[in-house]
């Protein structure tokens, strides 16, 4: 069973429906025990970084997710849920993220409109190590809506070009995240979720 973490932030139905579409039993839940029992945990998120941190703390889910991450359970962060895996964000100074990836999330820069609200192509990292993009060809198209993004670092697995090189995916072992919305990226997005599920079940290696 896969748990989509419901912490009162944004529209979580899309993520749940997308997992159901690839044949995965996905529950939308804020129940601590259910999340701790799940085979894989998905953390969506929209809006301001600080508001998401507040919501995680208010619901007691911050420590639950900390336990899930410490156990190296399969974990997928989406959009701001991905950003929450980092230490913090210049969007909300003073708010600490979950801190499993190093670095601070920053505002998009360059001669481009912010937010990026469009489809864009993924550029695979030099080592092309991520299983999530397995079978998806050279530069797959995915849908982004964001004003901030994590820094490019050693955990970055794919980037996109938007006023510069922007982190689009990152991962270390079973803890992965996407700045774009796989649940809204058509058949390519569904294939990414399917790859996540397969890796979470041990059918594919993480990298």
């Amino acid at each position: 069973m896969l748990a989509v973490v419901d912490y009162g932030i944004g529209n979580l139905r899309s993520a749940q429906k997308a997992f159901e579409a690839v044949g995965e039993d996905a529950v939308l839940t804020s129940d601590h025990a259910t999340i701790l029992r799940a085979d894989a945990v998905v953390l969506p998120g929209v809006g301001a970084f600080g508001r998401c941190v507040d919501a995680l703390e208010a619901s007691g889910l911050r420590s639950v997710l900390g336990d899930v991450l410490a156990e190296q359970r399969p974990f997928l962060g989406i959009c701001v849920g991905f950003q929450l895996l980092y230490e913090g964000s210049t969007e909300s100074p003073g708010f600490s993220g979950l801190g499993v990836f190093e670095g601070t999330v920053n505002k998009l820069t360059g001669p481009v409109k912010v937010p990026q609200m469009q489809w864009n192509q993924l550029d695979r990292g030099a080592n092309d190590a991520t299983t999530l993009l397995r079978g998806l060809g050279d530069r797959p198209w995915v849908y982004f809506v964001h004003s901030f993004a994590p820094p490019v670092s050693d955990v970055t697995t794919a980037t996109c070009d938007y006023g510069g090189t922007v982190t689009a995916m990152a991962g270390r072992g079973p803890v992965v995240g996407t700045q774009f919305h796989p649940e809204k990226s058509g058949p390519i997005g569904l294939a990414i979720l399917e790859n996540f599920v397969a890796a979470a079940k041990g059918e594919l290696p993480w990298s």
Binding site: R13, S14, K17, A18, A21, K184, S185, G186, P187, G189
Partner: peptide, 8 residues
């Protein structure tokens, strides 16, 4: 629609 179409 949302059950079969996965675009915004």
């Amino acid at each position: 629609t949302a059950e079969t179409v996965f675009i915004p």
